[in-house]
Amino acid sequence: MLKKIITLCIICILLAGAGLFYVWNQLDGYVNQSVKIDEPTLVTIESGTSFNSLLNRFEKDGWIEPSDFSRLLRRAHPELTQVKAGTFQVQPNLTLKQTLLDLVHGQQMQFSITFVEGSTFKEWRAMFDEAPHLIHTTKDMTEAEIAEALQIDREKLEGLFLAETYHYTVGMSDLDIMKRSHTQLNRVLEQYWGQRQDKLPLKNAYEALILASIIEKETAVPEERPLVSSVFVNRLNIGMRLQTDPTVIYGMGDKYKGNIRKRDLQTPTPYNTYTMYGLTPTPIAMVGEEAIAAAVDPDDSKYLYFVASGDGGHVFSKNLRDHNRAVQEYLRKLRARK
């Protein structure tokens, strides 16, 4: 009798072991199956999503084959269950286990948007509209409404954001990036304004920002920025009009069709520095750090004029006679290229 009992117990143990082996083998096959995606794919996990719901989603999307034992995965592999909320990029050629580990330990997918120096707020808004995975909260807002939302006490937002690359994750908004960019601009502007040269013809940091925006629009050559700045500072010091074309273009707005005519130079606008003295009332573009640095630390020069060289840079002159010669040389180069 005892022998039969022992035999029965052994059989039960063997059956149980066989059952556990079968279940474990099924789970192992389930967790080590390949995820069926052919290219890097974004997956967004909402806050509060359960582990089983995530597996069901993968099965429904055809990424993995279903299993009757999938609900046991939580107990067998608890290290796979602590997936984080957010948006992640799932890579192809991975197993389900590797994919889940990436969702547990990986970094959220980041996107970027780059604003170049000299771009305008109008151009920024268009870029925000095209940015993927970004919430467009300001799309139907006026500039004044955006300023109020950002707690900026100015009617125009031109120039009040620092031109550089900004990274964001899914769920962030264009307003979030504007806040960060405005904070960055204030930090950089405050730093350089505190290091400014003595006796600059600038009343405050905002005027330095205006000058920086004009410098930004006049040259894309980094080493020229301090020289361009010196020309404008020299003109301001002697009460000479700045006479810079980008301010005319900005003042023309949508009327600008690609070229400036003589009557455009003679038509007064709040931004036409051919008809007005001093700086424009606001910046005319977004700036980078280098333009701000040049505005508050211009080169020590006697230059009052500059014109394009025709080779990518500019020719600087101290008097009108030399400037006119440089203009004629520039026009000669243009004619030779036709």
Rank of each mutant, 00 (worst) to 15 (best):
A16Q: 09
S34V: 15
W63V: 05
D102P: 01
Y192A: 02
V221N: 09
V248I: 06
L211K: 07
Q266H: 04
Y274M: 05
L103F: 04
I113R: 13
Y330Q: 11
A212Y: 04
A326H: 11
Q110P: 00
E158H: 01
R337K: 15
F58T: 07
E130R: 08
T267Q: 15
D28N: 13
P222L: 11
N32Y: 06
I284E: 03
K203P: 00
P298C: 08
V83Y: 04
I249R: 02
D264W: 00
G29Q: 13
G171K: 13
Q243W: 02
E130L: 02
D61Q: 10
E224Y: 03
N272G: 10
N204R: 07
R196C: 03
V35Q: 10
E207T: 09
T7G: 15
R57P: 10
Q107F: 01
T165I: 11
R180Q: 15
K257G: 03
S181R: 09
V231F: 06
Y330E: 10
G171C: 07
L334Y: 02
T273S: 04
K338L: 12
I152K: 00
R125W: 00
S317F: 08
D297N: 15
E329T: 14
R335C: 03
Q195K: 14
E190S: 11
L175G: 03
F232H: 10
N234R: 10
P66W: 05
G118Y: 10
G278Q: 13
Y22A: 05
S34A: 14
Q89N: 09
E148F: 00
G278P: 12
A76E: 12
Y30M: 09
E143A: 03
L304Q: 15
L331Y: 11
M252D: 04
E145M: 06
T247P: 06
G239W: 14
S309T: 15
